[in-house]
């Protein structure tokens, strides 16, 4: 493809990226923080989309990975003096390991069983953090604070978070158009048929869970680095519900949708909550409206303009 055609095809994406690059130059500190949250939760939502939107696995414990990433980074930085970057390999290994264990225990059974077990495991991990026995390490309900700064200025952190989102998006895009990614969609569409054309469905689900877990773990550790604190809530059911909302509101099976969903949820959380006492009620109405009128999520507005269908999108 020539550069011109390339530019044409990705024009709107490029404009959006340029806006995001220029944003810190004319925005307040507060907007930067909100934007960083969106970038990081965008990655978290992308990771959930690989699982729910592409593979068709509904996990109710996705925050386990987010929390693990955050706590592994925080503990290693605070207690062992590691730099943020040096903790990354440990985050990857621990999240991959947890993904493997959870997957091997539960993925061979019906999906509803997986959903319930992940919910229980998520709660278990949350109590593990807030337990009196682990208090001296995890700080219990208070969490851990005063993580060393990864980069000197807020602007640098902003660009790091943006680069993280772009990299995660690019990698996820690569994965879903690969033979493995296409097989995940086939499993979502018809697990039995996928088996009967010779795919080892369990292996593919495991791989999906591990990839998704690693990505969610990295989002967690970036979140810890950005806030310079971790809280047990990172591991809690409300974090899982947030990521489910982001993915469904934005549009499952589209990668970009969940990022838009992350933006919507975080903007609602930040702004509605400061203007309205009953903001959750308003948020609930927004949620119902989106589900009723845009069942394929926010991203379907974009598709409506482009009149193009995505190969991976749910119909």
């Amino acid at each position: 493809m020539s550069i011109n055609r390339y530019l044409q095809k990705y024009r709107s994406a490029l404009i959006l990226i340029i806006i995001l690059i220029l944003l810190p130059l004319f925005s307040s500190e507060y907007i930067k923080v909100v934007a960083m949250q969106i970038f990081i939760f965008g990655v978290f939502a992308i990771s959930y989309d690989i699982l729910l939107g592409y593979t068709g696995i509904a996990s109710f414990g996705h925050a386990i990975f987010f929390g693990t990433g955050a706590y592994v980074s925080a503990l290693m930085m605070l207690k062992a003096g590691f730099s943020f970057w040096a903790t990354i390999p440990f985050v990857v290994v621990s999240c991959a390991g947890i993904g493997l264990v959870i997957g091997l225990l539960t993925l061979r059974f019906a999906t509803i069983y997986f959903t319930i077990v992940t919910l229980a495991l998520g709660q278990f991990c949350y109590f593990l953090l807030t337990n009196a026995l682990t208090y001296q390490y995890t700080g219990g309900d208070d969490g851990l604070h005063g993580l060393p700064m990864v980069l000197q200025t807020k602007n640098q952190m902003y660009y790091l978070a943006l680069a993280f989102l772009l990299a995660a998006f690019f990698i996820a895009k690569k994965i879903i158009s690969s033979p493995l990614g296409k097989t995940l969609v086939a499993i979502r569409e018809n697990e039995f048929r996928a088996k009967m054309i010779g795919y080892n469905v369990l292996n593919y689900r495991l791989i999906a869970l591990v990839i998704s877990g690693i990505m969610a773990g990295l989002a967690g550790s970036f979140n810890a680095a950005m806030l310079r604190s971790v809280f047990p809530g990172f591991m809690g059911a409300s974090t899982t519900i947030d990521v489910i909302l982001m993915t469904i509101l934005g549009g499952m099976g589209s990668l970009l949708g969940p990022v838009a969903g992350a933006a919507l949820v975080i903007i609602c959380q930040q702004y509605l909550s400061s203007y309205f006492e009953w903001w959750l009620l308003i948020f609930g109405v927004i949620f119902v409206l989106v589900v009723l009128f845009l069942p394929q999520g926010l991203i379907s507005i974009v598709y409506r303009f482009r009149k193009k269908n995505t190969s991976g999108g749910l119909n």
């Binding site: 690569k174 690969s178 033979p179 990614g181 296409k182 791989i207």
Partner: peptide, 12 residues
């Protein structure tokens, strides 16, 4: 049935 079935970073 191909050797590519687990490949991750190639466009199918």
């Amino acid at each position: 049935k191909s050797k590519h079935k687990y490949r991750l970073f190639i466009n199918a």
